Simulated scan of single mutants.
Amino acid sequence: MRGRRAVVCLSGVTPAHAASTGDALSLNADLALAAVRAAAAVGVPRVLLASSAAVYGEAEGPLKEDMACHPVSAYGQAKLEMELAAVALARDRRQAVTVLRIGNVAGADAILGGWREGMEIDTLPDGSTPARSYIGPKTLAEVVYQLCLADDLPEILNVAAPGIVQMGALLDAAGLPWTPRAAGDATVARVVFSTKQLEKRVEFAPKAGSAEGLVAEWRTYLADADG
């Protein structure tokens, strides 16, 4: 790694992985700390660590990097503990680190990536479906690359394309059928990232945050993976 500009740690333990393997969610902190130590040991100037919107809990937003986090899931709590531990170690080692709180990634999400026949989506009284901050796989890769080259990054940075996308609109753009169901009390209507800090450092394609743009990136990824 010596001579490189950044160490990027996107690895982690998700709830699904933990359930299938028995790995502890606390390993998220271990992985992040290992990345910080490795970079500091060989003088790599920056570390980028993958975190999650789950650290914000049930807040709808706009979710800003400097707001208090109140995770409601064990995964969100583990990711928040990872952030705190990594930032503390980085400060102690005088190692620049930026935690990337990544929104829903098209195709790796529960809606587009988890679509199945007969899928139901909560529908709100106004006919809309829950909306989330999203980013496509190609755009995510481009963002991470640009951040590796950037100077003066903050310790925490939200990562999503500008705007917000309804779940139903995403499936409609993909031509995947779904069935509406009445939203319950537990339905979170909107989870919206503030991307102002990211947009100061990264340029986005005009349709990067649209349902059509996200689906196009997802399909390109699938075609490349199959090829």
Rank of each mutant, 00 (worst) to 15 (best):
52 S>R: 08
96 A>T: 10
13 V>W: 08
220 T>N: 15
87 V>G: 11
34 A>G: 14
85 A>R: 08
151 D>N: 12
112 L>K: 06
198 L>A: 08
189 A>G: 03
93 R>A: 10
140 L>G: 07
138 K>V: 12
188 V>H: 02
36 V>D: 01
179 T>W: 09
39 A>S: 00
53 A>G: 13
108 A>W: 13
20 S>G: 12
118 G>A: 02
225 A>F: 14
194 S>R: 11
169 A>R: 01
215 V>G: 12
155 E>G: 10
68 A>N: 06
81 E>A: 15
147 L>C: 11
166 Q>H: 01
207 K>L: 15
35 A>P: 11
117 E>M: 12
222 L>S: 08
147 L>W: 10
192 V>A: 11
137 P>D: 04
163 G>Y: 15
2 R>Y: 09
161 A>T: 07
140 L>C: 10
31 L>F: 07
93 R>S: 06
72 V>C: 14
98 T>R: 05
183 A>I: 03
91 R>F: 12
59 A>P: 14
142 E>L: 06
86 A>P: 11
84 L>T: 15
71 P>T: 15
106 A>V: 12
25 L>S: 02
169 A>W: 00
46 R>N: 10
218 W>T: 08
227 G>E: 01
161 A>P: 04
133 S>A: 06
222 L>H: 05
101 R>K: 06
21 T>V: 05
182 A>N: 09
126 D>Y: 06
108 A>E: 15
110 A>D: 09
182 A>W: 06
202 V>F: 06
68 A>Q: 09
133 S>H: 04
81 E>K: 13
131 A>M: 00
9 C>A: 15
47 V>G: 04
166 Q>R: 05
175 G>R: 07
89 L>G: 05
29 A>I: 00
65 E>S: 02
88 A>E: 13
17 H>Y: 13
58 E>Q: 15
211 A>T: 03
30 D>Y: 13
93 R>V: 01
50 A>L: 00
86 A>F: 10
110 A>K: 11
129 T>K: 01
183 A>R: 02
157 L>C: 04
66 D>F: 14
28 N>T: 01
52 S>P: 09
195 T>E: 03
180 P>N: 05
46 R>W: 11
18 A>S: 07
157 L>I: 09
203 E>Q: 14
34 A>W: 07
34 A>T: 12
154 P>D: 11
12 G>R: 05
195 T>C: 00
49 L>P: 13
180 P>V: 03
100 L>N: 04
100 L>C: 08
71 P>I: 14
59 A>C: 08
217 E>A: 01
29 A>F: 13
4 R>G: 04
137 P>N: 06
117 E>C: 10
200 K>H: 07
59 A>W: 06
195 T>W: 04
211 A>K: 02
226 D>V: 15
173 A>I: 05
148 C>P: 06
120 E>I: 01
131 A>C: 04
138 K>C: 13
